[in-house]
Computed example of a mutant assay.
Amino acid sequence: MTEGGDWQRDVLRELADTPAAPASTSPPMPPAPVDPRLPSPPPQPASPTRPVPRGTRDPRLPLTTPESVPTVDPRLAHALGRPQHGDSLTQRTGRSLRRLTTSAGQDVAEQTHLATELQRPVTTGRIIAVTSIRGGVGKSTVSALLGRTFNHYRHDPVLTLEADAALGTLPVRMGAESVRWSCADLAQILTPAMQLTDVTGYLVPVADGGWLLPAGQGRVGAPMDVRTYRTVTLALRRYFAVTVVDCESLPGDVARTAMDTAHARVVVAPMTAEGVNGTRQVLNWLAQLPHAALASTAVALSASSPDTTLDEKTAAAHLREAGVAVVSLPYDRHLAQGGPIHTVMLGQATRDAAVRLAAEAMHRAVRVR
């Protein structure tokens, strides 16, 4: 794929089946005669069930295929319960009535603008890194929302990559029932000769479109290192228009590397006074980086409780002083429930906020670099 050519057309062409080789016009060669006095040749070993991509490694070297591991223990799967709507029945009914009595012209114009931002053409893959000052503030949830939003609006390949600790929740939030290949596994076999169809054989397909690459198999183990992260992201960005990276929390080494090298950044800030204050310190650090890191950063101000007492306008204004866009993610019952995210079950305000946040990130990823 050349950077000056039609990058999207090249990628989509690789998704199509490889055409069969043309039949030869020469007559077939007759089989060689077999001497009955010679011993029979030894049986050939059966070919592996998993095809090895072209040019990935010496086939004589053993390759241990990891086993598929469920993202949620089957004994706990029933404990998730039925997913509930982010909006109550009263809210959904009231919204339907308002649509019948108000003009939709302004909403259509805004949605058209956001869709244009989300569908911006790219010549090379864009990486959007998502992080936070600490765990448990909704970083993986925001990453999953961004991944699903890009999958919905874009027609080229989108990847959601987990670069968090081994026990991250991104695969569950993306709706993956099981995981097999991890970033560390893929880093050992990626080569420039691989095509998109080779790469996607190691990824988890997402129900709404796109692919997922987990950091591990849900077991306690060594966290991802910077070398693995660089190897995987540099190799995969040529196949995917957008890669959303769910990073570890700051100040981890991988998170710092991702924030320094990504095309756009999303910092998830909890809607608390200490959370906003700590996020402002992260923004001050980004402002000191040698390139325009702050100009390509957006903040997701996330509410994890319906009883948040912090004044949202004051918190957003404090963060905007650093020169970043701020998008508020309201409390959503569906997200608070945990488990897989079903887009149709999200509250309307949550869906709108996810689209705005994705548009802000994409605008910065294309504009700044």
Rank of each mutant, 00 (worst) to 15 (best):
H155I: 03
V204T: 14
T233M: 15
M224I: 12
P270A: 11
A193W: 08
A287C: 06
P290V: 03
T243G: 02
G210R: 14
A262M: 11
A264R: 02
M224P: 05
T257S: 15
H263C: 03
A166M: 11
P205M: 08
R219W: 03
L236W: 02
A287Q: 09
P290D: 12
G168Y: 09
P214F: 01
E162W: 01
R148T: 00
A166S: 15
R238S: 14
V199T: 13
G221Q: 09
A166K: 11
V199R: 11
E177T: 10
G175K: 05
V232Q: 10
D253E: 15
G218V: 10
P205Q: 08
P251S: 11
V254A: 06
L213H: 11
W181T: 10
W285V: 08
Q188S: 13
A207S: 09
H291Q: 13
G168V: 02
L212K: 07
R180H: 03
A215I: 03
G221P: 01
P270K: 08
L212P: 07
R230N: 11
V158A: 00
A264D: 07
I189T: 13
L283V: 05
G278V: 07
T169I: 05
R237F: 01
P192F: 13
D246K: 01
L159A: 11
Y239A: 08
T197E: 06
P223F: 05
H152L: 01
V206I: 13
V204D: 04
L170C: 07
H263Q: 13
Y202D: 00
A215P: 03
N151V: 06
V254W: 05
M194K: 07
Q217S: 02
P223V: 02
E162H: 00
A187V: 04
T279P: 04
V245L: 15
G201M: 09
R265E: 08
P205S: 09
T197C: 04
A255Q: 02
M259G: 12
L203Q: 01
R265G: 09
G275K: 04
D260G: 04
V179G: 08
S182C: 10
V232W: 12
T272C: 05
L234M: 14
S182E: 08
A262V: 07
R219Q: 14
L159M: 12
V254K: 00
G168W: 03
P251D: 04
V244H: 00
S182R: 14
A264K: 01
H263W: 01
L289R: 14
G168K: 06
Q288E: 14
Y153T: 08
Y229N: 00
G175Q: 10
G201E: 10
N277K: 14
I189Q: 09
Q288S: 12
V226W: 04
F150S: 03
L159W: 03
A184V: 02
M174P: 08
L196Q: 07
